[in-house]
Simulated assay, not measured.
Amino acid sequence: MSDFLHVSSSPHVRSKVSTDGIMKTVLLALLPTTLFGIYNFGLHALLLILVCMATCVATEAVYEKIVNKKSTIKDCSALVTGLLLALNLPPKAPWWIAVVGGIFAILIVKQLFGGLGQNFMNPALAARCFLLISFTGRMTDFTVPDGAFGKVVDTVSGATPLAAVKAGESVNLMSLFIGNTKGTIGETSALAILIGAAILLATKVIDLRVPLTYIGTFAVFALLFGGHGFSISYLAAELFGGGLMLGAWFMATDYVTTPITKNGQLVYGVCLGIFTGIFRIFGGSAEGVSYAIIFCNLLVPLIERVTMPVAFGKGGKKS
């Protein structure tokens, strides 16, 4: 039979953009945040990053070998998952937590649901939430490792900036923006995250629709229900503290778990902002970004269903 009659499966639109190219750009964009995390928290942070990335790649390679699937480790998606997971870990977490989280992210959330493009929620955040539930004490211990730069300006209370804000305490906004504070390895420096976001925007890997809708909705929610009135310092602390910036620019924009329709992305961003506000302001924890994103990931099929454009010629009134 002639090759002319062979038709490949959809999609039939071709692009020069490749998966590995996108993933390498994301890794590049995460470099400022990663380097600052290592600088801020020391060599143990580097160890966790390397262990997370190695575990994710090894898990994907071993699983695909066992089930006789084509290897996909060259597309760098496992490296991105491992790095994002590491950036969401406390700087003093034991190395075995990185191993458990990496295996859960790749094996349970990604591969068992069909691999890249089939996972129903962000693997790195799903793994973080799993670790938070399973090892709450270790995942909420933000003690700064010995020798870390952050130890120099360590606060007496030991609380993260968001926890301090929730308790009614004041925080240093400049330290919060630069990143010389407590938190997970990759969430402390809003400046480093924004530099990475600029790289993603400049290379057109993401657009502004989801991040700005997410951040804007949360800002309005915090001002209305935060109990501090229209306090700019409170709003800045909420925006730059915790995982909001990292989540909005690097995880809420995940292609697989984000609506494909433009209106759907706006709805998705609004839902993210509302749920983050509910979890942060009315919940028992000062944080809520991870839970908000994976919960909204589950809403994506419904959001796409109600925002999918109607085909031309359909949907009109019948005479």
Rank of each mutant, 00 (worst) to 15 (best):
S18V: 03
S18Y: 05
T19Q: 09
G21V: 06
I22C: 03
M23L: 06
K24M: 07
K24W: 05
T25P: 00
T25H: 04
V26A: 01
L28Y: 08
L28G: 05
L28Q: 04
A29N: 03
A29E: 00
L30S: 07
T34D: 02
L35I: 11
F36Q: 03
G37C: 04
Y39Q: 05
Y39A: 14
N40G: 05
F41V: 06
G42I: 08
L43C: 06
L43N: 12
A45T: 10
L48E: 02
L48D: 06
L48K: 03
I49L: 02
L50I: 12
C52P: 08
T55P: 12
C56N: 08
V57F: 11
A58S: 15
T59D: 00
T59M: 00
T59N: 00
E60C: 03
A61W: 13
V62L: 13
E64M: 10
E64V: 04
K65H: 05
V67T: 14
K69T: 07
K70S: 12
K70V: 13
K70A: 13
I73T: 11
K74C: 00
K74P: 01
D75K: 11
D75A: 12
C76E: 13
S77E: 04
S77Y: 04
L79C: 14
V80T: 03
V80E: 03
V80M: 09
T81V: 10
G82T: 08
L84A: 08
L85Q: 04
L85Y: 05
L85E: 08
A86D: 08
A86E: 11
L87Q: 04
P90Q: 04
P90G: 06
P91K: 04
K92Y: 00
K92E: 04
A93N: 10
P94E: 05
W96M: 09
I97T: 13
I97Q: 13
V99C: 05
V99W: 09
V100E: 06
V100N: 07
G101W: 10
G102W: 01
I106T: 05
I106Y: 01
I108Q: 00
I108G: 01
K110E: 02
Q111R: 15
L112T: 12
F113Y: 15
F113T: 11
G115P: 09
L116V: 15
Q118P: 06
N119F: 09
N119Q: 14
F120C: 02
M121R: 00
N122C: 03
P123Y: 02
A124E: 05
L125K: 10
A126R: 01
A126P: 01
A126G: 12
A127M: 11
A127I: 13
A127D: 09
R128H: 12
R128V: 13
R128L: 09
F130Q: 02
F130E: 09
L131A: 11
I133F: 15
S134A: 15
F135C: 13
F135R: 14
F135V: 14
T136E: 14
T136G: 15
G137H: 14
R138W: 15
R138C: 03
D141V: 07
D141Y: 12
F142L: 14
F142K: 07
T143R: 08
T143P: 06
P145W: 05
P145K: 13
P145D: 10
P145F: 12
D146S: 15
